[in-house]
């Protein structure tokens, strides 16, 4: 098991809406409790980060305003080869909202203009009517190492993502990839090192098993030391009761 992990946070300077920096904080906290040091590096617009990508165990992209995403589509596509190679060798891609959209084929904005994505996966995203954003609490049931797990978060996206064959999970409450849809996010079948989702909250704040899943995959650990998650469990119980009448 590795005792040091490197996380590359893409564009934290511009993609910093919705408290997504909390995902890094949650990873760092739960790594530290297992004696794993999490080194966090940043890639900003225009940086040359080939080495950082090459060495990264986790590549992380958060959400941001639409205006900002246009600026960085070009920057990101210039690193397509490096990111694809990192993914091939097993680096974990954690992609939230804008990050999720940018890994697909393209994003079609409300004027019909296509912003090309990285094209790593088949899906694509189209903007919906400005008044038709998917906003609200969301619960997604996913499977982590064969075990069902309810992931709780908050979605806020105008884009609708189509062409996903292997979603992150089934939507139990909320919209997911498309308004009123049945499925949420993207995971590649046969691969355990990618997670694309619309979930903020931030994603890893209330889903400790998901956080540990990512850490275990990256550290190459069969299992991780159990932590006292009683506070997390109480938080989850309150929300699941409210959202799913459980």
């Amino acid at each position: 098991m590795k005792n040091k992990l490197r996380l590359l946070h893409m564009y934290p300077g511009v993609l910093d809406l919705y408290g997504d920096s909390g995902n890094v904080e949650a990873l760092k906290y739960r790594c530290a409790k297992r004696g794993i040091a999490l080194e966090v590096n940043a890639h900003e617009l225009g940086d040359s980060s080939e080495r950082l990508i090459e060495n990264a165990d986790i590549i992380y992209l958060g959400g941001g305003a639409d205006y900002e995403q246009q600026q960085l589509a070009d920057d990101l596509t210039s690193m397509k080869g490096a990111i694809a190679a990192a993914y091939e060798r097993g680096a974990f891609l954690l992609m939230i909202c804008g990050g999720y959209q940018l890994l697909g084929q393209y994003y079609k904005d409300s004027n019909g203009k296509r912003i090309p994505g990285l094209g790593l996966f088949d899906y694509y995203t189209a903007a919906s009517d400005k008044t038709d954003r998917c906003i609200g609490n969301i619960v997604v049931e996913t499977e982590l190492d064969g075990e069902k797990y309810k992931v709780i978060g908050f979605e806020n996206h105008g884009g609708q993502t189509y062409g996903v064959k292997t979603p992150f999970g089934r939507t139990l409450c909320g919209s997911g990839n498309t308004r009123g849809g049945e499925y949420e996010g993207f995971m590649e079948s046969g691969k355990t090192n990618v997670l694309c989702t619309y979930l903020h909250g931030p994603l890893l704040s209330k889903n400790p098993k998901l956080t540990d899943y990512i850490i275990a995959k990256c550290a190459g650990a069969e299992s991780l030391k159990k932590l006292d998650d009683s506070l997390e469990e109480k938080c989850r119980a309150v929300l699941l009761k409210r959202l799913l009448n459980e």
């Binding site: 909390g22 904080e25 906290y29 209330k206 006292d228 506070l231 938080c235």
Partner: peptide
């Protein structure tokens, strides 16, 4: 509980946090 968790993850001693809805 959300704000309690947020404060816990900032590194503050969990034993000193009392969530009382």
């Amino acid at each position: 509980y959300d704000i309690a968790l947020r404060i816990k993850y900032s590194g503050f001693d969990e034993g000193k946090i009392k969530p009382i809805p």
